[in-house]
Amino acid sequence: MASSATGRRARASGMSRQETRWAWLFLAPWVIGFLVFTGGPMIASLVLSFTEYDVISAPKFTGLDNYRQLMSDPAVAKSLGNTVFYTALHVPLAMAVSLGLALLLQRVGRASGLFRTIFYLPVMTPAVAVGILFLFLLNGQTGLINAMLALVGVQGPNWTTDPAWIKPGIVLMSLWTLGSTTIIYLAALNNVPRELYEAARIDGASSWRQFRHITVPMISGALFFTLIVNTIASLQLFAEVYTMYFGNRATQESTTDAALFYVVYLFQQAFQFLHMGFASAMAWLLFLIILAITVLQVRVGNRFVYYEGD
């Protein structure tokens, strides 16, 4: 008896070890990829952030100089301010519009597959193409957006040249690619049990109360996830803005501080001015800011988010 139990335990333990080995084997490409392409460069950039390094010559240790410069460089504060402003405007707006679209898609019925595809298609457009497209659409004198505003008697601003309107213009552009968030919300909405709505209707709850007290709590997990992901993506916005305002010599020469986003300035420091050490320090500051915001969001979010199985 005892020997058969020991044998079963030994077999189970052997299988477990085998499964573990297989698990590591399947995980290996991602683990190796992370170590080589993310973890390694992160450590390298941390080391470089304490040096003066122009890519060509060997790095020179400068202690905390780059971090001190971060505090004194007005362009760092300006670019960070622009990025935070954009994030504060873009994230809630993107979430609200995506949720609205998902609610509409849920009601479309049979044709929802077609509309899902249509709403998702812009996500497939390369960021560079989106940037160029919106440079034309947002043109204050000849752009389509101001032409449409003119139809309702509104004289649109110079979206691409007036510093006060550049960031709102970029936010407008960012709403082009809401497909992913919309699809996530649609999936979450479809998972809300119908009987909850039926019970609420029997109790005489209005549509708004059903939305407020059933829909929002039940999809709060999806809302929370997109809040975090969109915040991180917004703080790292680069390709579209770079294409619009820094993509070629002509745009670069006549752009304003209003379009200087944090990662754009980081890129300029690294590859235009060859201050790779300073750019590394900028990258680490951004990493810490994102980490702090995400931790805060998780702490606050956990109080309001409903997870299945809670």
Binding site: L135, N139, G140, Q141, N158, T160, T161, S254
Partner: peptide, 11 residues
């Protein structure tokens, strides 16, 4: 003015 000039120039 710069806003209008650059917008027209860009087009």
């Amino acid at each position: 003015g710069w806003g209008k000039l650059k917008s027209l120039r860009d087009s």
